[in-house]
Design a protein around this nucleic acid. Structure first.
Lengths: 339, 339
DNA sequence: TTGTATGCGTTATCAT
DNA sequence: ATGATAACGCATACAA
């Protein structure tokens, strides 16, 4: 063990002059042991500096006190903020969290699966795209699991995500309230579910405002800065330009804004732009980006809570929890330039 | 256990019609078992889907296959990039990584210490300020540990950090090469070691360039955006202004740049500014910040490598490894405005 | 209220 | 080359 001279329950028992069973009881069900004995035991624990060997305990109990969290990329700031919520919640319950990242490598995903089978994880938090498809048979063998952001295995696993529709609706409503009517939506063909939902929020907002289909423009990028720039080029090849661009995420918005200033336009004087996510850079762009903030820490907290519900009941908990994100108003939105 | 119906070594033995000892051998020292037996065992393993129960294995072996990484703040992007290096290196050796964060709460630090004593961690990676001071007696009971960024426990633990002197030297040399002579250094009174070293790099550069002491200005902030702004105000109360501000970190630089543009000055036309760290926002500021990039992933990799050296030898490995950071030239530095 | 004894799944020692 | 068995440290069923 890491600490070869650490005291065992036996050392404590010897010192307290009781049996190891009594020591164990004194720790886990103090009410079952006489007050005087309890005191002796506690004293012995203090003297020896005894701490339970979690390895042995978990083996005996047939469970682990670790939650494995697997994400595509640990380095992603998006991920690390969620991690905070996850960790706090887990620690509060005496669980530790183990992390892994797949770097979009299916092989790695499988490795973690093996890891899980080695009984080192009591539960699983799975981020988008983290498990290899085509292994749906493994669901049956998975410990209680919760997805983050998107359903895993076609909904076989409950998940906590963001209410993209409501978030997008906030963005489009802001634009509409500023007087915009011709609002372009630039989506992300890769991240299909989120993109579709955000686009739905856009459509619902436009519907509610009575903007005819003919004034709507919908493009698809792939969620990168570059694709934002590209989408902008496509926009400029059209007869009529929108007055605002609603982007599926912040990176796309960065591309759009960059492209716009390269063409000599100013945001928001000439065009308004919104993002989605509120990445760390968002507040430092010029202009600072008006966007929708992912409730990251809350997502982490909620996901872990849900996981513990699962761990407790074997019964069905909720299968989809959507958190409503907030609008962050900065400076990339203004009224449309009068024609 | 998480997977109640998972096969044990006994299931495999029964199916292969051998003893559990043979199964264990077939796995860990195949050369000691007859080829035909080996095949039977492998087949049985495949059929049962057996994976070693790491809990039992580690208990028996008296060690763990987890490395505990404790940082003040998991959410810090600075931290998460290092995590990538740590995780990759650990996984390559069959270790998992457990994370914890103290949020600068000494009590939490102690909790993790207890965790360590429960034999769940084979080794420790400690970030700056993560362990409560005044508990130096605990060093003796710690498993092999490596510090990141700064020495822990007054050097009792080897660490991997950044060569702040060399990094700062790169920044000041750039400034000097552009023709600046009156360069202010804005330090960080809180982060004393790093600040002192960066300041030393500044001084060495100024010495080498033959800039007299009288032309040097040294201020101390606390490493925040706000303190950068404050330092700037102090600067403007002086008789002679510097032509460049070398900041102890990027956040300070943000404050300086913000203050400068609030006063109507332009960077780098009127003043040049450098940062240190290369935070994610650095490239998105206006102007994009010229700074020193922390070799984060390399730090993580190196720290984990060092830890495994420690785990292998009990003998003394290196006690201080300093990685040299790179200069990232963006747009916040130019020649001084002709007077 | 307390103690004895068993087993969790491994690995390793010692026989055979 | 293989098997029987002890031990890792703990929690609990059962006995006292």
């Amino acid at each position: 063990m890491s600490n070869p001279n650490s005291a065992t329950i036996e050392d404590v028992a010897r010192l307290a002059e009781v049996s190891i069973a009594t020591v164990s009881r004194a720790i886990h069900s103090p009410e079952k042991v006489a007050k005087s004995t309890r005191q002796k035991v506690n004293q012995a624990i203090a003297i020896t500096g005894y701490t339970t060997n979690a390895l042995a305990r978990n083996l005996r109990l047939g469970r682990s006190n670790m939650i494995l969290v697997i994400a595509p990329d640990i380095g992603d700031p998006n991920f690390s903020s969620i991690l905070v919520g996850l960790e706090n919640e887990a620690r509060a319950r005496g669980y530790g969290i183990l992390i892994g990242h797949t770097q979009n490598d299916a092989q790695l995903g499988l490795e973690y699966l093996k890891f899980i089978n080695s009984n080192q994880a009591a539960g699983l938090i799975l981020f988008t795209g983290v498990l290899p498809y085509g292994h749906q048979d493994m669901v049956a063998n998975l410990p209680p699991s919760v997805g983050v952001f998107e359903p895993v295995f076609n909904g076989g696993i409950p998940y906590v995500g963001v209410d993209d529709v409501a978030g997008a609706r906030k963005a489009v409503d802001l634009l509409l309230s500023q007087g915009h009517r011709r609002i372009a939506f630039i989506g992300d063909a890769r991240n299909r579910l989120a993109s579709r939902r955000r686009r739905q929020g856009y459509s619902e907002g436009m519907d509610a405002a009575g903007v005819p289909e003919s004034q709507r423009i919908i493009l698809d990028g792939d969620g990168t800065v570059e694709s934002g720039r590209l989408a902008l080029e496509q926009l400029f090849m059209r007869d009529t330009l929108p007055t605002a661009m609603m982007c599926v995420n912040d990176l796309t918005a960065v591309g759009v804004i960059t492209g716009l200033s390269a063409r000599g336009y100013s945001v928001p004087a000439d065009f308004s732009v919104t993002g989605f996510d509120d990445v760390p850079q968002a507040g430092f762009l010029s202009p600072p980006l008006t966007t929708i903030r992912q409730p990251r820490s809350a997502i982490g907290k909620k996901a872990m809570t849900l996981l513990f519900d699962l761990l407790a009941n074997t019964e069905g908990a909720e299968t989809e929890i959507l958190l409503v994100p907030d609008l962050v108003v900065r400076e990339s939105v203004g009224p449309p330039r009068p024609q």
